[in-house]
């Protein structure tokens, strides 16, 4: 791997970290509404997988999606604009924190109902098989909590029955909101659930971006080469609460502290220094560049306008369709003027 690529991975992790920290501040100031689920602590997963994903590989994830949006290639300024509900956001201010996507980058969201995107991912892979896109893989991310809901089991079963090219990736951050894996799942290793579907599987450590890259790369190619669906469990940890309103009664400070010692950014920084791939100065430079990118993203988002009132009635349907009860009148207006 080239030095520049190492530095890119490092910078991307720092950008995601800083975007999330700024998002937390903006949330406290009331500029971001709704729920805000921060990705802090899990950066090695999205950055690692994002760096080996091929353009034809479809990516779909759950609601903790800011890191994924950036790792999918979306400019952080559009991510920040969406957080602020602005017209320049990834979803024009209509989706918010949990619903970011860019279909041109083959990034399909950002889905907020736990597990509901899992059968959808199977269908996307079916679409590729149907259309003869033989080298495309659908990479479907979800949390540990999603593996206890029916959608997961229906989706995995279907993918195996139809031998679909899906890489199922469980980002196991060890808590579904405040309920630990042990308290919610009959098996503590999520990968075991693949056994019931005769599906190959593995469990790897997720705090080291190089490990994530190497291990995921192997199985991604296995799926790409016709191996059928695969379940990869990546063990990680979120340093912040589930969302901004989390009292964190379910875990001890010591536990969080222990995982913070494995901060993926620190781990990777040390690796780059120990292997003499980069110097302190060079990494500090990356940190500074990341700060500039994030400052610019926030400035861009703050100066982006709100969607206009008309946007309320746009995109209900793709085809021109009368809007019901618009202005409490018999509406015959077409939304696509």
């Amino acid at each position: 791997m080239e030095k520049s690529e190492h530095l890119n991975l490092y910078q991307e992790m720092v950008v995601i970290r800083r975007i999330e920290e700024r998002a937390a501040e903006l949330y406290q100031k009331g500029k971001i509404g709704g729920f805000l689920h921060l990705y802090i602590g899990q950066e090695a997963v999205s950055v690692g997988i994002g760096s080996i994903r091929q353009p034809q590989d479809r990516l779909i994830t759950a609601y903790r999606d800011h890191g994924w949006a950036i790792s999918a290639g979306i400019d952080p300024k559009y991510v920040m604009a969406e957080l602020l509900g602005k017209v320049d956001g990834t979803s024009q201010g209509k989706g918010g924190s949990m619903h970011m996507a860019d279909t041109e980058l083959n990034f399909w969201g950002g889905h907020a109902v736990v597990g509901a995107h899992i059968p959808i991912a199977a269908g996307m892979a079916l679409g590729d098989v149907y259309q003869g896109n033989d080298d495309a893989v659908t990479i479907c991310m979800f949390g540990d909590g999603a593996t206890n809901i029916g959608f997961f089991h229906e989706g995995l079963n279907l993918s195996k029955v139809w031998n679909l090219p899906v890489l199922w990736v469980c980002e196991n951050n060890q808590y579904g909101m405040g309920t630990s894996v042990e308290r919610a799942s009959a098996v503590s290793e999520i990968r075991q659930k693949a056994e019931g579907y005769g599906m190959p599987n593995n469990r790897i450590e997720g705090m080291n971006v190089m490990t994530v890259r190497e291990e995921t790369s192997k199985v991604l190619e296995e799926v790409r080469n016709g191996g059928g669906p695969y379940l990869l469990e990546i063990v990680t940890y979120r340093f912040r609460g589930h969302s901004m309103g989390d009292p964190e009664r379910y875990r001890e400070k010591d536990e969080v502290k222990k995982w913070e010692d494995e901060d993926p950014i620190g781990v990777f920084r040390n690796y780059l220094l120990e292997e003499e791939i980069a110097s302190e100065e060079e990494l500090d430079e990356q940190d500074e560049e990341a700060e500039v990118i994030v400052d610019e993203a926030v400035d861009f988002a703050e100066s982006s306008p709100d969607p206009d009132d008309e946007a309320l009635f746009e995109h209900i349907y793709a085809e021109p369709t009368p809007v019901e009860y618009r202005g409490y009148a018999m509406a015959q207006e077409s939304e696509e003027k």
């Binding site: 479809r58 399909w108 509901a116 899992i118 059968p119 959808i120 991912a121 199977a122 269908g123 996307m124 892979a125 079916l126 679409g127 590729d128 149907y130 259309q131 029916g150 959608f151 229906e154 989706g155 079963n157 279907l158 029955v161």
Partner: peptide
């Protein structure tokens, strides 16, 4: 399909998103 309605409709949504008409 299996008797799995969420998989039937969910996967149809996915296929529709990527250009098919299920």
């Amino acid at each position: 399909t299996p008797i799995a309605e969420a998989a039937i409709v969910g996967s149809a949504i996915g296929a529709a998103l990527v250009g098919l008409r299920p």
